[in-house]
Design a protein around this nucleic acid. Structure first.
Lengths: 237, 237
DNA sequence: ATAGACAAAAATCTCGAGAAAAAGTATTGA
DNA sequence: TCAATACTTTTTCTCGAGATTTTTGTCTAT
């Protein structure tokens, strides 16, 4: 009678888009994160509706969805813009991410069962393979690596029972993805990210909460440092 | 040339609505929080567009905005529903709120200047007055009290420089407002909320971070306990 | 009586055009 | 030369109607 059994967790990439608006939304989000539409750019519905091959109202809805992710800002009667970026903003994103993600990791370590451990190991393996192929010579796209990196971080906190923390973490991850692209653009994997991930997995499986959160914090904060070292004009508007 | 000077902080109640869609959004949000549209209810565009006197597309946009606040969930090709409520959800909301709000309060206490102290005292005064009038015999609506209570909690963490924490906290506050209504419905101010607020203000002004966060945590968690004591049928779907 | 399938009804999703607002351009006067 | 005003163009916002999809209702066969 009451079919609220499986409420759609959130608007995450679960299945394929069931509506044109959602399809446009995903494509737009990708293009924004990729930097095709640059921070601060105006997003004119009249132009974009042709580019994405949907009606004006539909594209409007897609833009509204992006506001939810804070990748787009809507200004009263003056249309939409790509959310601006700044170093302050990224520092904020990073610190907030640390706050949420360490809390989630703590609970995940505390509550995770065998299946969780297995999924962590699996995700780490996939990520490692992507790194191998990436260094090997373009046998694997950075696209693929990003996807697996995201999956790894997601699985790590998957045993945290708080939907809200996971929801917010998800938003922040997408945000920081924009900045991380900038960083990777210059220095194609500068730090020994692999070792950091390995250390996190080890500590997590050993149920060493303090150690795991410490490493995770360093891991996340290091990306901030990397971006801080970028030439300023990249993070201008 | 680049007029990004004042990016619209977020979609909070700052000015009056500049667009029909936003007007409908606010009215709808109010009605959902008030419980006029109950958790789990289907929100049929065809019906609601008459009720709120806007076109179908416009109402659609309003609903999309509510998805951002997680007060409404959109299901693929099957329309919109009022976000369901549950005790587990409220527990999650509360704990996440504690995590964010205590962190924000710490920073606020650390960084707040004289102006911040003044605004805290002012907000507390307004809230106290509302409580007086409320107990006095309906000289002040619970509407008013809710508004000032929200303002108080907002001002308390206003000196926290993290926009993201404040943004998330705002979402969670609106969420918990739905539950708090249920609680207040039965027990018209059961606990000595005033004393708790007073204690928070004292500790904050004394820059006693540990004490302030401790009290704030208790304060927030107590609402959870109150809701837990409610008859189950109120939190059914 | 229950289950399945087919048909009718309702609701959602989508589109393009018209009204309102903002931005841009040119003209005029000091 | 500059400022202010009026006009033009662009863009956003809004609405109602049509196309798809989901849901409801009915009928038949096992």
């Amino acid at each position: 009678m009451n079919e609220l059994a499986n409420p759609p967790e959130s608007v995450i990439e679960d299945e394929q888009p069931k509506t044109l608006a959602e399809a446009a939304y995903r494509q737009l989000r990708r293009d924004i994160i990729e930097g095709l539409h640059r921070p601060g750019d105006k997003l004119r519905v009249e132009h974009l509706k042709d580019q994405y091959e949907v009606g004006a109202g539909t594209l409007r809805e897609a833009l509204q969805l992006l506001v939810t992710d804070a990748l787009v800002v809507a200004q009263g009667q003056r249309g939409f813009r790509v959310a601006p970026i700044s170093l302050d903003d990224f520092e904020d994103i990073t610190r907030t991410r640390v706050l949420l993600e360490t809390s989630a990791l703590q609970q995940s370590i505390e509550l995770g069962d065998d299946a969780w451990e297995a999924s962590v190991v699996a995700a780490f393996h996939l990520l490692s393979r992507a790194e191998d192929k990436l260094g090997d010579g373009g046998k694997c796209s950075r696209e693929e690596w990003e996807q697996r990196n995201r999956a790894f971080h997601e699985v790590l906190i998957a045993a945290c029972p708080s939907r809200w923390i996971r929801h917010f973490q998800n938003i922040l991850y997408h945000q920081s993805e924009r900045y991380r692209r900038l960083s990777l653009f210059r220095q194609p994997i500068p730090r020994d990210v692999h070792a950091e991930h390995q250390a996190i997995v080890d500590a997590a499986l050993a149920r060493n909460t303090a150690e795991a959160t410490r490493i995770l914090t360093d891991h996340i904060m290091r990306t901030l440092e990397a971006v801080k070292r970028l030439p300023e004009e990249l993070i201008s508007r």
